[in-house]
Amino acid sequence: MKVRQACEAGVPLPQALTQRAVQGPRFISQAELPAGVAYEAHIFDTGSVPTREGLHDFFNGLCWMRFPLTKRRLNQLQAAEIATAGVGQVRGPVRDGLTLFDENAALLQAPDALWDALLARDWTRLLVDLRPLWAQARLVLFGHALLEKLVVPYKSITAHVLREPVPLALGDDLAAWDAWLAQTLHAPLLASKPFTPLPVLGVPGWWPANEDPAFYADTGVFRPQRVAGA
Score class of each variant (00 low, 15 high):
residue 163 R to M: 09
residue 95 R to S: 14
residue 158 T to M: 08
residue 68 P to W: 03
residue 223 R to S: 04
residue 59 F to M: 04
residue 12 P to R: 11
residue 20 R to Q: 10
residue 3 V to T: 09
residue 133 L to M: 00
residue 104 N to D: 12
residue 87 V to F: 06
residue 193 K to C: 15
residue 52 R to I: 03
residue 139 L to Y: 06
residue 170 L to G: 08
residue 70 T to N: 04
residue 55 L to Q: 05
residue 88 G to Y: 11
residue 82 I to V: 14
residue 191 A to V: 01
residue 131 R to N: 01
residue 15 Q to P: 00
residue 212 D to T: 09
residue 54 G to A: 13
residue 51 T to Q: 05
residue 19 Q to N: 08
residue 126 L to W: 02
residue 7 C to Q: 10
residue 112 D to N: 13
residue 143 G to C: 01
residue 39 Y to R: 07
residue 154 Y to I: 00
residue 87 V to T: 14
residue 117 A to Q: 01
residue 53 E to S: 14
residue 227 V to S: 06
residue 229 G to L: 06
residue 179 A to L: 13
residue 177 W to D: 02
residue 73 R to P: 03
residue 2 K to S: 15
residue 69 L to Y: 04
residue 224 P to K: 07
residue 121 R to A: 00
residue 167 P to S: 14
residue 135 A to R: 12
residue 67 F to I: 00
residue 29 S to D: 14
residue 75 N to W: 01
residue 17 L to H: 03
residue 63 C to K: 11
residue 49 V to C: 10
residue 25 P to N: 13
residue 23 Q to W: 01
residue 101 F to T: 06
residue 53 E to W: 03
residue 124 T to Q: 12
residue 11 V to K: 02
residue 6 A to W: 05
residue 94 V to I: 15
residue 78 Q to N: 14
residue 152 V to R: 13
residue 149 K to M: 12
residue 153 P to S: 00
residue 98 L to S: 09
residue 223 R to N: 01
residue 21 A to D: 04
residue 122 D to F: 01
residue 43 I to L: 15
residue 125 R to V: 09
residue 81 E to T: 09
residue 98 L to A: 10
residue 33 L to F: 12
residue 55 L to N: 11
residue 108 L to W: 05
residue 188 P to Y: 11
residue 146 L to E: 03
residue 173 D to I: 12
residue 47 G to L: 08
residue 177 W to Q: 00
residue 5 Q to E: 15
residue 100 L to Y: 01
residue 66 R to P: 03
residue 83 A to I: 00
residue 151 V to D: 07
residue 87 V to N: 08
residue 146 L to M: 00
residue 13 L to T: 07
residue 56 H to K: 11
residue 31 A to H: 13
residue 158 T to R: 08
residue 152 V to K: 10
residue 47 G to T: 02
residue 163 R to S: 11
residue 49 V to Y: 09
residue 86 G to T: 10
residue 165 P to K: 04
residue 79 A to D: 13
residue 106 A to C: 10
residue 130 L to N: 00
residue 50 P to S: 08
residue 92 G to H: 10
residue 218 D to P: 04
residue 46 T to L: 07
residue 52 R to N: 05
